[in-house]
Simulated assay, not measured.
Amino acid sequence: MSDSWPRRRLLAILRGASEPLDAQELARITGQHVTTVRFHLDVLTKESLVRQFQQPPRGRGRPRIGYSAVQRSVGYQELSQVLADQLGPDPRRRSEAAITAGRVWGAKLDAGDHPVKSLEDAKDVTVTLLSELGFAPERDQSGEPDDQVLIKMTACPLRDLARTHSEVVCGVHLGLINEVLDRNGSRGAVNVRLQPFVEPELCVVRLELTAARRTLENRDAAAPGRAEGPPLNEPPLAQTSAGRVGGPQLRNADADIAKQAAKQW
């Protein structure tokens, strides 16, 4: 487009319009003569920045010509491809870098304040996040064990790139989910796994309780008079007013479980 302020203004108006506008409407909005507006619209049309639509006439007469801005792609697919190629040839390092990038993204994202105190809470936070990002998530309740939740991702904004660079695209999404859940209190309690392309157009997110959390919940269930366990973000073996859970010192098995959970994060 040539450096023309009137044409830039017309294009901005059309981009913000919810429906096509004709030359007379644009002339009224801009204060320009309708002949001048038609001239600029012809230039924008020839440059493929504006598209014409036939509209019904107002009263009697010939159909009107409406104009709408052509929405151009910003090229995110190409940009993602370039970024993926810059992460180096080692798939493992590419995956680690992508997960780190996803966590950085998650730390900057406004994910709301939804305390995660159960696996069901973790599912709700994850489904909300994926919905807002365009993944069209669906919970798969068929064959779910008690300590796992499966979420189907039926859409992906970068699916074509994920087919060739799944370690990068899925790594970013995995880091993002982990960071958002951690920010809401699930650190050390929920493992997140992402399984790409379990079907040609389907990926699956699997949320599961960590070994430390499962052991703690089993112990709580077996203890008389204990109705429910502590929130997910409470340390696996918490200090109480009567001393440490399990006696004066951590038992070896408990220490091993805590170490395993820490290594996972």
Rank of each mutant, 00 (worst) to 15 (best):
166 S>W: 08
162 A>R: 07
174 L>R: 10
153 M>C: 14
180 V>L: 03
186 S>T: 05
172 V>M: 11
176 L>M: 13
180 V>F: 03
179 E>W: 00
175 G>S: 07
174 L>G: 01
179 E>F: 02
173 H>W: 12
158 L>D: 13
164 T>A: 06
187 R>W: 01
159 R>E: 14
178 N>H: 07
190 V>T: 09
169 V>Y: 06
167 E>W: 02
179 E>Q: 15
174 L>T: 15
160 D>H: 08
156 C>G: 11
158 L>P: 01
159 R>G: 12
154 T>I: 06
191 N>Q: 09
168 V>R: 01
182 D>K: 06
162 A>K: 05
158 L>A: 08
177 I>A: 01
160 D>G: 06
156 C>V: 07
191 N>E: 15
186 S>K: 04
188 G>I: 08
162 A>I: 11
177 I>W: 02
173 H>Q: 12
190 V>C: 08
154 T>H: 11
181 L>E: 01
153 M>F: 07
183 R>L: 04
167 E>A: 05
180 V>Q: 00
161 L>W: 02
154 T>R: 15
190 V>N: 02
166 S>R: 13
187 R>Q: 09
155 A>F: 10
153 M>R: 12
176 L>K: 10
157 P>E: 10
163 R>M: 14
161 L>Y: 02
188 G>T: 09
165 H>I: 06
168 V>F: 14
164 T>W: 00
185 G>P: 04
154 T>C: 13
158 L>H: 10
177 I>C: 02
155 A>K: 15
190 V>F: 06
173 H>E: 12
185 G>D: 08
179 E>N: 06
172 V>D: 00
187 R>P: 00
174 L>H: 15
190 V>W: 03
180 V>R: 01
188 G>Y: 10
191 N>R: 13
153 M>I: 07
185 G>E: 04
180 V>M: 03
189 A>V: 05
163 R>T: 15
157 P>Y: 12
169 V>D: 06
167 E>I: 00
189 A>G: 13
177 I>T: 06
